[in-house]
Design a protein around this nucleic acid. Sequence first.
DNA 1: TGTTGACCTCAATCTGGCTTGAAGTTGCAC
DNA 2: GTGCAACTTCAAGCCAGATTGAGGTCAACA
Lengths: 134, 134
Amino acid sequence: MKSLDISEVSQRSGLKPSALRYYEDLGLIQSDGRKGLRRQYDDTVLERLALISLGRSAGFSLKEIHSIFQNEGRFELDRDRLRAQARMVEQQIRRLRILARALNHVSDCPAPQHAECPTFRKMMQKALGQSVRP
Amino acid sequence: MKSLDISEVSQRSGLKPSALRYYEDLGLIQSDGRKGLRRQYDDTVLERLALISLGRSAGFSLKEIHSIFQNEGRFELDRDRLRAQARMVEQQIRRLRILARALNHVSDCPAPQHAECPTFRKMMQKALGQSVRP
DNA sequence: TGTTGACCTCAATCTGGCTTGAAGTTGCAC
DNA sequence: GTGCAACTTCAAGCCAGATTGAGGTCAACA
């Protein structure tokens, strides 16, 4: 159980110290005590930060992520909820696959204007179906 | 080439009229003329909006998306750039797959604290490797 | 035993992505 | 031709997610 200070956590997570303090304010992470004034972190914080980054990049807000981590540092036990989140992520993956295919297609397709290309139009139709978001 | 007014585009795209005007200000979409003061849209705008939504949900900013659409409404011809974008999306998909697996795992795993579960720790190690982002 | 550089707090500020509101205009059904 | 709902512009406001800056503290090294 190695103790890390904020700059080491910052370096290893890619997040600025200001962001780490902000996450702590929000209750997303905890420092494991202080050395004087200085926060010390348990190295499991890095896993938690990785999960936060993943969640962010899946389009979850910090508030939503916070609500996934309840019960004092344990992950909450609402399995249905977690499964529902997993399904949202899978849906997002499907959308992104369409985007990746669209980009690859556009980079290879010889049609001068993509509005004219039937393959592209078909992909966009599919995307329209997948991408209804609030 | 049917002409749509803003409320129809809004309804069919799921975006509010205010968002459509905002996107037009940013140069992401164009109205195809006006009927009096009122914007009229060509129906290809819906495909473009679908692509914008996909891009947003992939974590691209409106500025980044704008830079993908250059050359007056055509998609830009910088194929290398498009392929690079596609690779970023694929990378993102990989991250999300880890997230989906993590969520599904947590929802099934009996370990009382996930920091103790080796499967989970292994996934998080993998996530750490994948999730380095600015 | 300084001193200094990395930390600390707290409030203010910034950016991105819209939304809202006030005040004005107009297509269209009657 | 009149009314009015649906548009228009433009500036201000709002929320999330941080970052910055001023002013203060302190661990550790020379």
